[in-house]
Design a protein around this nucleic acid. Structure first.
Lengths: 198, 198
DNA sequence: TGAGATACATACTGGTTGGTATGTTTGATG
DNA sequence: CATCAAACATACCAACCAGTATGTATCTCA
């Protein structure tokens, strides 16, 4: 694939991501994506064999990459595990504020919409959630070994609950369409995280 | 409206609820709902002026009623607030197990899908969430007055976080398609609730 | 018993959807 | 320079969608 071809592919992915983020996968219109990019239908079907494959590519190549820089990288920071976690959540909240709270977490949106009706989506989302969860889990385990995190908790279960709460907070904020509600929820989450200290 | 007319209306609401629960509102097909019920299109548009109004009716007359019996009634039980809360959550989890975990919480599904693109849905969901939250809040407040709940927490913020976590847990379980994951998440939630005791 | 409203039933429409068939242009390679 | 595949472009299609126009039973009530 030459450079031009790759750039049209990327612009399709970006436009598809935005369209899906706003309207969901099923309601996302290929024609709208084409209008937005100026790409023609022939070009789209040259790069992606179907709407479904385009959706998978958005997950694999766009959302997964964004999650990498927005979450997995901040989690690599040194320091007190609880504080690293809080900082990562805070950063996620800030980014989330910028790009329209009302659109929700792209990953959670797709999970909600598609996991019950398409297994390809479900498995991809599941893989990302598992990586997400284990990144939290290993942070907690490290803290337990260092003596900075309460050893009476189960790291895996707790990590899972933290992730669920985080998604729940973003979900509630999306519906309330209010940053205040997100902050409110964030407060509850921070309280909980503090209760995990040793 | 006579008894026959009301029963066709109810069967439309039920089928619409099921179709929406599985595929979402936008992807729900009126023809599929008609096939499922044996009702004709003329009858449907006699009872509901549009697909949107049908969707609103599903929220107002089906989901709201279900939430009433599944949550608000159990919350009226006497006893230790934290234990009442836990019992209500457990009951919700049991019911949730029966009717296909993979379909998710009907209210949360609609919130996710529609709140960003239709204000009628958003406001209805918001109202239900607010009632849901304040039912938890008043339980916590009662506990604080009785001395059974930690007085250092903010009842409103905490109630909001509990609700968000609950929705998050159901959301994660939906994607994982596993009751084990729901239980895992429930364990985390129970731990958190226990930490709120005085 | 007759008039009018309620409760349907049937057939249809315009618009949109994802997808395809068939072309043309462009760029790499021998 | 010729060749061939990659990278598009245009026009079209059948299926489906929500919604409507128009007709007909049935039920109520004066």
């Amino acid at each position: 694939m030459n450079a031009d071809a790759d750039s049209t592919r990327q612009s399709l992915l970006k436009a598809a991501y935005e369209e899906i983020h706003r309207y969901g996968f099923q309601a996302a219109s290929l024609n709208a994506i084409l209008d937005r990019t100026g790409v023609t239908k022939g070009a789209l079907y040259h790069h992606f064999s179907s709407k479904l494959q385009l959706g998978y590519a958005v997950l694999d190549e766009h959302i997964a990459v964004e999650l990498e820089s927005l979450w997995f990288e901040p989690m690599q920071q040194p320091g007190h595990p609880i504080e690293v976690l809080m900082a990562a959540i805070k950063q996620l909240g800030d980014h989330y504020e910028c790009e329209e709270i009302t659109l929700g977490c792209p990953l959670n949106n797709l999970a909600q919409e598609m996991s019950a009706i398409d297994d390809g989506f479900r498995q991809r989302v599941d893989t990302l959630y598992q990586r997400w969860q284990s990144s939290i889990e290993s942070l907690l385990t490290r803290g337990q070994q260092q003596g900075s995190v309460n050893t009476s908790i189960d790291a895996a279960d707790t990590a899972f609950f933290i992730l669920a709460s985080l998604e729940g907070c973003m979900s509630m904020a999306k519906n309330a369409q209010s940053h205040d509600e997100l902050m409110r929820c964030g407060k509850g989450l921070m309280n909980y995280l503090n209760s995990l200290r040793a």
